[in-house]
Amino acid sequence: MTAAVRLAGVSKSFGKVPAVADVSLEVAPGELVALVGPSGCGKSTLLLLLAGLLEPDAGTIEVGGRLVAGPRTWVPPEERRVGVVFQDAALFPHLRVADNVAFGVPRGRERAARVAELLELVDLPDLGRRYPHELSGGQQQRVALARALAPSPSVVLFDEAFGNLDSGLRTSIREATVAALHETGAAGVFVTHDQVEALAVGDRVAVMRRGRFEHVAEPATAFHEPASRFSATLLGEADFVPGTGDGAAVDTELGRLAATPASTGAVEVMLRPHEVTFTPGGSAVVDRREFRGASYVYTLRLPSGALVRSIQPHTVDVPVGALVTAAVEAGHPVRAFPPR
């Protein structure tokens, strides 16, 4: 089956600064890929390249099997059938909601029906006559989605689309968006710097750093078996504890752990706070604890001086300075990295 989007060896520099370096990616029809990375990693640039709002220096881009950018080939954005939902919605302030949604739909008898259908889809059927500034942030974002979906694009790009919404709203809009995308069958590429969003939305997650992909994988794999320490910390809280591998498992201060990849000699294993438990008494010290409402995050100082965090329900109430014994309950082999 033809990929919705295929990038091969795409590079783009601004002056001497490489923003995107030799990036390749395939997005299947209907698939949602989350591009996550710190600001300045090149993820927004990649999006603009895909949309045709920037020209790549090298590499090829295909949309729906059609070559849109490459050596000697350049298809302008208006001919790519790529929808974009921008940060801050970027609605046309001088046009009413319905006109915004209708903007990309060719004139004709079908147009009004299409607009109504899309406003229905994003659950804003009655707001067509409003101006953008009369809408809330969440409503604007949904109109932006409707506008992007209106010309039936084969892929929709989201550039930090929910970044400016408060967290409660963000979740509901995100769910609505994913639902709407699935309904239309369009593929989606989400750019975000929020790992929770990336893991929740993406069928796959692409971790980007300094213009390159560090790891492209399904969310669970990316989370539990990150390709790098960078990916590990980007996608969630992580601590690195030294140990010694013997090819079968790794010996650490928290016990002998199954690890992947199989390692020998000195390694560091990645532990996420929810994987670490502890019992009273022992040689580790509770260094600090942070209240998070439903839970506490304890920071434990191991005898070697290494720090490891453990997340516990609020019912587990251990004072700072208490001695404990830490253990790991991962349920899967932990990720081992070469020592730094």
Partner: peptide, 21 residues
């Protein structure tokens, strides 16, 4: 810049986007 880009991705040629947005 962004509204212009948005108009382009919605199918408008450069001059059309300039005029309408």
């Amino acid at each position: 810049a962004t509204p212009y880009g948005a108009a382009r991705t919605l199918g408008l040629r450069p001059l059309q986007a300039a005029r309408r947005v």
